[in-house]
Design a protein around this nucleic acid. Structure first.
Lengths: 183, 183
DNA sequence: GGTTGCATGTAAATGGTTACATGATTGT
DNA sequence: ACAATCATGTAACCATTTACATGCAACC
């Protein structure tokens, strides 16, 4: 599961440029379970093109640099279906935020509070974005709606946990700061 | 945020061998937000040792290969606190499972059902493991309990969503299979 | 005059996984 | 006999991010 399969998947829903693919993974319906930078998207697109799995048309634009609009080929669709049928790898998550929380009792209550608030704000923005996405996806295929629903459930649970329990962590840390100050 | 900081963090809780560190990230309290293989742990430990952030004692064992037990140094603790104080990077998740779900309507209901069941089983096992961990952590520092609680909340939400909504996806896919067969 | 959005791409550096290499003990 | 657990490590390979390079238009 790499940038090539990602591009193939996105292109299976309609033609797009490398720039637009990047949008899909940063703001669109893939943003909650995948990421890729231009540095992986453009090379992937070139390799897919060499292999005949996509084809790209150059589009001249007035007052703008040329666009390359990519379209998936029948061979590309086949390759994607094959990748889709593989047993999925285990999810890979790396969360420096959770790592920080794990050692939260070593940090200042002030710093912890700020970090958690920032993350909560990020979750709320993401949830709002995904809710808009879900509205727009009312007529989208079942799989797309389901994956969005799963993402929303997870983000809401995370935000809810932070809202409901942060004060417990914070008050414990504050307490231990008081003890240290008294020493 | 890399394997070095991970090792430093784990060693800040007590001495350990590379083998034991791997255990922490596969089965222990770090498993839900980090991963690292031996291929990254052992080199990280060697580099940390060179930099004086940990020190390793060789322990001869009867009828077993030697162990190297690593301990964090004061300089190591300092380096870890510095890393902990940085603004945390955005979480990085790559989920081939969710990618598959996104294109679920292109797969057979049978295959989808099996994949979702497998994942649900995995979530249930993980939740059980984390619940045991949480019991054992009743007297652990506040941060550790909080991070476990967050992980549990997320995993329960994901499992709950799959349990409650998988049938919707499956019945839609089954329906479209029926339509195709009728064509 | 500065930032944001559109648009493509490369090269270096980073960081990591996978497979290999070794080897004894314990349990099935 | 075979698999699993304990135990360490390296090398080849892989993928990806980051920083760089370019440039115009629209908006503030």
């Amino acid at each position: 599961m790499n940038a090539k399969i990602l591009c193939l998947g996105i292109l299976s829903r309609g033609e797009a440029t490398g720039y637009e693919i990047r949008k899909h993974v940063t703001e669109g319906p893939f943003s909650h379970f995948f990421d890729a930078s231009y540095g992986s998207i453009y090379p992937a697109l070139n390799r897919l093109s060499e292999e005949g799995l996509v084809d790209g048309r150059a589009m001249a634009q007035e007052n703008r640099p040329d666009k390359k609009v990519y379209r998936i080929t029948p061979a590309g669709r086949l390759a994607m279906m094959e990748a889709l049928t593989d047993k999925p790898e285990a999810d890979r998550l790396r969360s420096q935020f959770t790592f920080m929380l794990f050692f939260g009792h070593l940090l200042s209550a002030r710093h912890l509070d700020e970090t958690i608030s920032d993350r909560l704000a990020w979750y709320r923005e993401s949830i709002a974005r995904m809710e808009q996405c879900a509205e727009a996806a009312a007529d989208s295929p079942a799989g797309e709606r389901f994956s969005l629903g799963l993402g929303l459930a997870i983000y809401r649970a995370a935000a809810g946990y932070l809202e409901d329990h942060a004060h417990e962590l914070l008050s414990e840390v504050l307490l231990s700061e008081g003890v240290e100050a008294a020493d």
